[in-house]
Amino acid sequence: MDFQDGISRFISNSPPAHYVVKIQFSLLTNNSIERYESGIFEAGGYKWKLILYPSGNKGKNVKDHISLYLALEGASSFNHDWEICVNLRFFVLDQNNHNYLVTQDTIKRERRYNKMNIESGFDQFFPLKDFNDSSKGYLVDDICTFGAEVFVCKERNMGKGNGESLAMIKDVITYKHRWRIDNYSGFGSECLESKPFNTGKYKWIMKLYPKGQGTGIGSGYLSLYIALADPTSLLPSGSKIYAQITLRILDQKQSNDWFGKGNYWISGSSGEIGYNRFMLLNNFTSQYNGYLVKDSSSLEAEVTILGVVDALF
């Protein structure tokens, strides 16, 4: 048995119990295939596949070695707190001696797989110098054979934890929604609401309070807000979005729109977002301005999702 760099290697006359892949190696190297994925196989009640880097995993700066990993399939359906612990062995067929070189961790180490970690193995699995030497029997007539054994030794619920993941949106999209209010003077309610509108996967509504809301009540101002139409879409613990929001009342005569703009963190409990004192009511209703024309007004909301925070657990 050979021990080196935390890895043990020994010879076995038994083939791998769970999966074997036979490869014409030059098909990978001559076609610059840097990563090869095997078919899916089952072991221990789960589905797996082998990931082979014939010239080393360049993402981890591996040189002069083959990199080999075991990847878990279907982890996206797992709960965040579910974890599988496995012992794994990788095999390479010695075609000259008709046995297998087996590689595993030196110490009885558990490889952990969960929703955040679906791949594990050996960056420097096999030196290319030894592998390409046909006298050693691992690559003969351009053919090589790899295999794997996977033993699930533990399945556990890690329990609820705390944490969050913030991802900023690379290619942001600005969504616009125009809301026209006709027969403004005929509304007797304290709050006018638009119909729900979409910005990607989120739904919003606009709200106009002609007599003000909050600190705007009794001040001679009207209040304008935007709110999630379905706050439960962000109810999971820690979930929130970071958005740039612009609210406008359009000037229908001179295009001198009245607007407010800001960036906000929005969660399921954020409520209404906007301005208690958005515009003086006298300015809004004045016949000399273009905000209310023939008892009709046009309002607009712009929403740009800049980032999303999701709970890790």
Rank of each mutant, 00 (worst) to 15 (best):
F126H: 10
C144A: 13
P231N: 02
D105N: 13
Y138W: 10
D141L: 12
L27M: 07
F25C: 04
A301Q: 04
L312P: 01
C191F: 06
A75S: 14
F125A: 06
S134F: 08
L234S: 03
A43C: 10
S8V: 15
L192K: 03
T174H: 01
N114F: 08
F197L: 03
S239I: 00
Q24R: 15
Q95H: 13
E119K: 04
A167P: 04
P231Y: 02
L52V: 12
F284T: 02
S38Q: 08
S67T: 06
E37F: 07
C144T: 15
N263E: 14
L68N: 09
F313E: 09
P16H: 09
E149A: 09
G274V: 05
R180G: 00
I118D: 07
L101Y: 02
G307F: 04
C191H: 02
E300R: 06
Q213N: 15
F259Q: 15
S269G: 01
V20S: 14
G214I: 04
I51W: 01
N97D: 13
A71N: 08
D64G: 02
T106M: 14
P210F: 11
L128E: 08
C191N: 03
N79E: 13
F10H: 14
L50S: 04
I245F: 03
S12C: 12
S239E: 04
L208E: 01
W258S: 09
E119Y: 00
V309E: 01
T215I: 11
M168G: 05
G137N: 06
T215A: 12
V140F: 14
R111G: 07
K129Q: 12
L52T: 05
R178P: 00
S185Y: 03
K136N: 11
L139V: 12
F122N: 06
I40V: 12
G218H: 05
S237H: 12
I169A: 02
V20R: 12
G147Q: 09
N96T: 11
Y138K: 10
I143S: 08
F78N: 07
I107P: 00
T145S: 14
R89T: 08
S135M: 10
N31Y: 12
Y288P: 00
G59Q: 10
D171I: 03
G163K: 04
S233F: 02
N276F: 09
R277T: 13
D105F: 09
I51T: 09
D182Y: 06
G271L: 00
E190N: 11
S296V: 08
N31T: 11
H98S: 14
L292R: 09
